[in-house]
Design a protein around this nucleic acid. Structure first.
Length: 829
RNA sequence: GCGGGAGUGGCGGAACUGGCAGACGCGCCGGACUUAGGAUCCGGUGGGCAACCGUAAGGGUUCGAGUCCCUUCUCCCGCACCA
């Protein structure tokens, strides 16, 4: 029985229920099949799906369904990045417990995801806030700790007053909190760090392996890690102490006219002893410390400094240079001290001019001369060495190496590689996160919680106050404990872990989500890892993607994970915009996925979002575009239901091309060209928009065939071939309607379980082709010729065309270019 | 400033290694069917009456350039006193 109208609500509900009941997308390891791990970044359970999610999961589902039909064992899981601040804010604002808020949100979003019809193996669902999960997050923390990769230190850290917690460097954007936009301040706190800098080199080096990643993301990570090679040189202070400075320009060392320390530099204190201006200087230091990150690190920011009264000796030429303190030197990078070379460094020049410090040129441009008195811009290019003792006359690029060698020989310093990357601050003064499994004992100090006592459970009966103070620190039943080593009364760590810790290993957990003895089963990791295709927003280019790589490398080194890179291929999708702007409540341009699904169905929503733009590009939401996609699905529905009586029960005989007439052949050719195009577009190019347009052309072609061929004369086998392939090709994009029509045609099995078709080479062969005839590069005529035509023959035919003859009369034929089976270009004068 | 990407009809976007610019869709115009059509089906649709002109602008290479090279402009994204 065939229903006439496309009732998407009925169709979608029916198939969603069936997939759920049959657990249609559940997978297990099957060593006899090739595997494919398709992963989309799991969402934070904010409560509702937004269009960005729909796009992300629609893309992922096309990939997953496609590979499944290609015969792969496809792991396609979903879960929840469920710890985080919004849950806590909801608790403060509405008095709902973060746990309840989170779990309710998860329920709602799971429901919405199911409305989308994404082919997940729901049996593998995980939530990072579940004790069965965060137990292993804690366990991993302990492994890091045992291996010296988790440590505690006091440092000036980023503090977000609004979130009332510290932040990692990666989570500060333009001096503002990446989450809430509040200006970040500095706070001196003792905090937990992960030693990601120990992996800086490998994180950088292995980017080269990630050929399946967008160049853009690799470059961003490269810049973030910020490796620079240089020399650390010790300048001697007059009190006998050494000040090491880091420079990438040892060739400019003879041009040093002063030394600058960061205001936080440990030597500052003693340098000021006995200085009558010490009070003034300390005031300056205090002022700089209070300067926000934005002011202090703005490139165009005013450089400010004070003279300490002390001098240092340049070890290479014995110059006595003043030691200054300035706001533009950062304690966190290098040694917290730099050598000032105003002639060859723009920042130093600006500083020197302001404070009337001498400028000394030590590199002159080849064939030119710059004057230190009048120069307005530092000369940073290579050139000829001058004023540099034994190195005079050398090319500065050569001198760079020679001076480095000289410094090392003399013991003035050594080569050094510095990174911009800092260690990852993972402590958060918040409640809704994985507790750091550490106990502080008066006698034993920092004591890790024994693995057997994990998880350190988050207590549920805590109080939330609007001040944002960590509820854990006030929860005595939690903080009061005994030392696991000596049994004495002890205090628990009350900070929780950055949620990025939780998301740094979830892709491993999916491989064995119910494992109770360990975080993951190695045999299963060996089967599934790495993730073959990872899909998500580019906003995680540094944060999550760098952390996840770091975790994978650490776990690889510990022998726990068989791969050292987690994500083989990465697709970063563009944003979903409305009227050219990001969808936001304040702009009032939010389109709700649930509303679209309600009015048009999930298939339409998915189809539109995949058709409107290639995945990496931003996509502007268009209500009319949605209408168009909806119209197309209706067109498919009418076509297939209309043809059903003609193709039902028609056997799929091997077709012989010879038996077909011209129309049948050309339809068959279209069918197979479509198969070819859709396959390539999904598999090799991720161009879902063009894949869908090819399917649309097939539908147009089928309509066209029917219009021009009366029912009695239609070739039922070709029609059947067309309609069944249409549904198969459509099924990754619009799975519900494809499933329903497949069933209505009486085809055996489910469409999603069909083998992905391969184009028939015989059908792809066309006997006639149209070639283009150009005169002087301009198209002048088109001729139909037999395929496989000899180039000489092509030329002859081209020249014989009346139009061409006419154009050529009275001209001299200079040259004939022939692209076989494509075009003939006649060059005339 | 440095790095990455992008500029193609009224709009979203096609065009693999240089070889018919504008596929497909939206919108618009016309026709058919209709009591009606905002449904559906069919046809048309870069500009110009034409020769011709058209892929941000200018130059170059080539028989031939949206595609390759040089110069410039605009927009988006990332990083930004990192020594």
């Amino acid at each position: 029985m065939v229903s006439r109208k496309y009732n998407f609500r009925l169709v979608e509900r029916k198939w969603q229920e069936r997939w759920e009941k049959e657990e249609a997308f559940r997978v297990t390891e099957n060593p006899s099949l090739p595997k494919f791990y398709c992963l989309e970044m799991f969402p934070y359970p904010s409560g509702n799906l937004h269009m960005g999610h729909v796009r992300n999961y629609a893309i992922g589902d096309v990939v997953a369904r496609f590979y499944r039909m290609q015969g792969y064992q496809v792991l396609h899981p979903m879960g929840w990045d469920a710890f985080g601040l919004p849950a806590e804010n909801a608790a403060i604002k509405h008095g709902i417990h973060p746990a309840k808020w989170t779990w309710d949100n998860i329920d709602n979003m799971r429901r919405q995801l199911k409305l989308l019809g994404v082919s997940y193996d729901w049996s593998r669902e995980i939530a990072t806030c579940h004790p069965d999960y965060y137990r292993w997050t804690q366990w991993l923390f302990l492994q890091f700790y045992k291996n010296g990769l988790a440590y505690r230190k006091k440092a000036a850290v980023n503090w977000c007053p609004a979130c009332a917690t510290v932040l990692a460097n990666e989570q500060v954007k333009d001096g503002k909190c990446e989450r809430c936009g509040t200006e970040v301040t500095k706070k001196e706190l003792e905090q937990w760090f992960f030693r990601i800098t120990a992996y800086a080199d490998r994180l950088l080096e292995d980017l080269k392996k990630l050929e399946g990643w967008p160049e853009k993301v690799r470059v961003m990570q490269e810049n973030w890690i910020g490796r620079s090679e240089g020399v650390e040189i010790r300048f001697k202070l007059e009190n006998g102490k050494d000040v090491p400075v880091f420079t990438t320009r040892p060739d400019t060392i003879y041009g040093v006219t002063y030394i600058v320390l960061a205001p936080e530099h440990p030597l500052v204190e003693e340098l000021l002893q006995g200085n009558p201006d010490a009070l003034e200087i300390k005031k300056f230091i205090e002022k700089v410390r209070l300067q926000s990150e934005i002011v202090r690190t703005a490139a165009e920011g005013e450089k400010e400094g004070v003279f300490t009264g002390a001098y240092a000796i340049n070890p290479l030429n014995g110059d006595r240079v003043p030691v200054w303190i300035a706001n533009y030197v950062l304690m966190e990078y290098g040694t917290g001290a730099v050598m000032g070379v105003p002639a060859h460094d723009q920042r130093d020049l600006e500083f020197a001019r302001k404070y009337r410090l001498p400028v000394k040129v030590v590199i002159q441009p080849f064939g030119a001369e710059i004057d230190p008195q009048t120069m307005e811009e530092a000369y940073v290019e290579p050139g000829l060495m001058v004023n540099s003792g034994p190195f005079d006359g050398m090319d500065s690029e050569v001198a760079k190496l020679k001076i480095t060698e000289f410094i090392e020989e003399k013991g003035y310093g050594q080569r050094k590689v510095n990174y911009r990357l800092r260690d990852w601050l993972i402590s958060r003064q918040r409640y809704w996160g994985a507790p750091i499994p550490i106990v502080y004992c008066e006698k034993c100090g920092i004591v890790p919680v024994p693995e057997s006592e994990l998880p350190v459970l988050l207590p549920l009966d805590v109080e939330f106050t609007p001040t944002g103070e960590s509820p854990l620190s006030k929860c005595e039943s939690f903080t009061k404990t005994t030392c696991p080593v000596c049994g004495a009364p002890a205090r628990r760590e009350t900070d929780t872990m950055d949620t990025f810790v939780c998301s740094s290993w979830y892709f491993l957990r999916y491989c064995s989500p119910h494992e109770t003895e360990k975080p993951f089963d190695e045999a299963k990791l060996r089967y599934w890892m790495p993730v073959d295709q990872y899909i998500g927003g580019v906003e995680h280019a540094i944060l999550h993607l760098l952390y996840a790589r770091f975790f994978t490398k650490v776990l690889y080194d510990l022998g726990l994970v068989p791969v050292d890179e987690p994500f083989k291929n990465l697709l970063t999708q563009g944003m979903v915009l409305k009227d050219g702007a990001k969808m936001s409540k304040s702009l009032g341009n939010v389109v709700s996925p649930e509303e679209i699904i309600e009015n048009y169905g999930a298939d339409t929503a998915r189809l539109f979002i995949l058709f409107a733009a290639p995945p990496e590009r931003d996509l502007d939401w268009s209500d009319q575009g949605v209408e168009g996609s909806f119209r197309f699905l209706n067109r498919v529905w009418r076509l297939v239901t209309g043809l059903a009586p003609q193709v039902q029960g028609v056997a799929q005989f091997p077709l012989s091309q010879d038996a077909l007439n011209t129309e049948d052949r050309s339809l068959r050719s279209l069918i197979h060209r479509t198969i070819q195009k859709v396959t390539v577009d999904i598999k090799e190019r991720f161009n879902f928009n063009t894949a869908i347009s090819a399917i649309m052309e097939l539908v147009n072609g089928l309509y066209h065939y029917c219009e021009h061929t009366p029912e009695g004369k239609r070739n039922k086998q070709v029609l059947r071939e067309g309609v069944t392939n249409l549904l198969i090709l459509l099924s990754p994009f619009a799975p519900h309607i494809a499933s329903e029509l497949w069933e209505q045609l009486g085809m055996p099995g489910d469409v999603h379980a069909q083998k992905w078709p391969e184009p028939d080479p015989e059908a792809l062969v066309t006997e006639k082709i149209t070639i283009v005839v150009q005169v002087n590069g301009r198209v002048r005529d088109r001729v139909e010729v037999p395929a496989g035509i000899d180039p000489e023959e092509m030329k002859k035919i081209a020249l014989a065309q009346p139009k061409i003859q006419e154009m050529l009369s009275g001209k001299e034929l200079v040259k004939v270019i022939c692209v076989p089976e494509k075009l003939v270009n006649l060059v005339v004068r």
